[in-house]
Design a protein around this nucleic acid. Structure first.
Ligand SMILES: [Mg+2]
Length: 220
DNA sequence: GCGACAG
DNA sequence: ATCTTGTCGC
C-alpha cells in the first residue's frame, strides 16, 4: 500500500473512533481495575513488547515481555501500522496465558493528536474495542500558549479549532509529554488518568517500567 | 519550496 | 527506535 492508500485507510477507520461527549459513556476507573501500559523496543526486525500491568490506581502487578517479528517500516504519521500489530499479538498472548483483560490501555504513541486524528491509540482502540489512551514524548501538531513550569500544568493541542489532546508537564521545568484520547475515553479523562500516574520522572510510572522491561529484553 | 516529523 | 558510559549541570 502506498502512502495515499494508507491515508485513506486511516480516514476510513477514524470514522469508528468514539470519543465520549457525555460523562455517562466516559471511561470510569474504579480501584482494582486493570490498566495495561505498552512500549516496544526494536532491534532489526524484532520487536520486544512490554506490557506493564497495574491495578488502579497504583499497584504494580508485573510486566510481561514478548518478542515478535516486525514487518512494517516506520513512517511518521503511520506508526500504528508498524507497532499496532505487535500490540495485538501481545494482548492475545496475555489473554491466553494469564486470562487477563484491560479496562484501559495506555500506548507509547498518539491517539487523536495526529494529522488525521488517527494515531496508534485510535487504531488499537478500533481494532480491539478497548478504551485506549495515547501518550507520546513528541508531537506532530503544535500547542499554543505558555505552558507553566509546574508539574501537572497542561495546555490543549488544537487541530482546526478542535481539542485533539494536551501537552502535560509531568515534571517541573522539563519538556512536557503529549496525552490524547484514542478510543472510548474523553480528552479530559485521558488527561486526568495520566496525571494520576505521574511520578518522579518525565515518564509516568507504568511507562517507565514498560520501557525498562522492553529494553531489558535485549540485554541479559 | 522549506521544514519537519509519534516510535 | 538504535549506536552507548561517563559526565556535566540544574
Ligand atoms: Mg517507546
Amino acid at each position: 500500500m502506498d502512502k495515499q492508500a494508507l491515508r485513506e485507510r486511516q480516514l476510513d477507520l477514524a470514522q469508528q473512533v468514539r470519543i465520549p461527549q457525555s460523562s455517562r459513556q466516559d471511561l470510569a476507573l474504579n480501584p482494582g481495575d486493570w490498566v495495561f501500559t505498552t512500549d516496544v523496543q526494536y532491534q532489526g526486525d524484532i520487536g520486544a513488547v512490554a506490557v506493564d500491568v497495574l491495578r488502579w490506581p497504583k499497584e504494580p502487578v508485573g510486566t510481561v515481555i514478548k518478542t515478535y517479528e516486525v514487518t512494517v517500516p516506520y513512517a511518521p504519521g503511520f506508526f500504528a501500522f508498524r507497532e499496532g500489530p505487535l500490540l495485538i499479538n501481545a494482548l492475545e498472548d496475555i489473554a491466553r496465558e494469564f486470562n487477563r483483560y484491560p479496562k484501559v490501555i495506555i500506548t507509547d504513541g498518539h491517539g487523536t493528536n495526529h494529522p488525521r486524528q488517527f494515531g496508534l491509540a485510535c487504531w488499537l482502540g478500533v481494532t480491539t474495542g478497548y478504551p485506549v489512551i495515547g501518550l507520546a514524548k513528541d508531537t506532530l501538531l503544535p500547542y499554543t500558549g505558555e505552558l507553566p513550569p509546574e508539574q501537572g500544568a497542561a495546555l490543549p493541542v488544537l487541530l482546526d479549532e478542535k481539542v485533539v489532546g494536551h501537552a502535560l508537564r509531568t515534571r517541573k521545568n522539563v519538556k512536557p509529554v503529549f496525552v490524547s484520547a484514542g478510543h472510548k475515553v474523553s480528552q479530559g479523562i485521558a488527561l486526568e488518568t495520566v496525571k494520576q500516574l505521574m511520578g518522579q520522572y518525565r515518564n509516568i510510572e507504568p511507562m517507565r517500567r514498560a520501557d525498562q522491561a522492553a529494553r531489558q529484553a535485549f540485554r541479559g
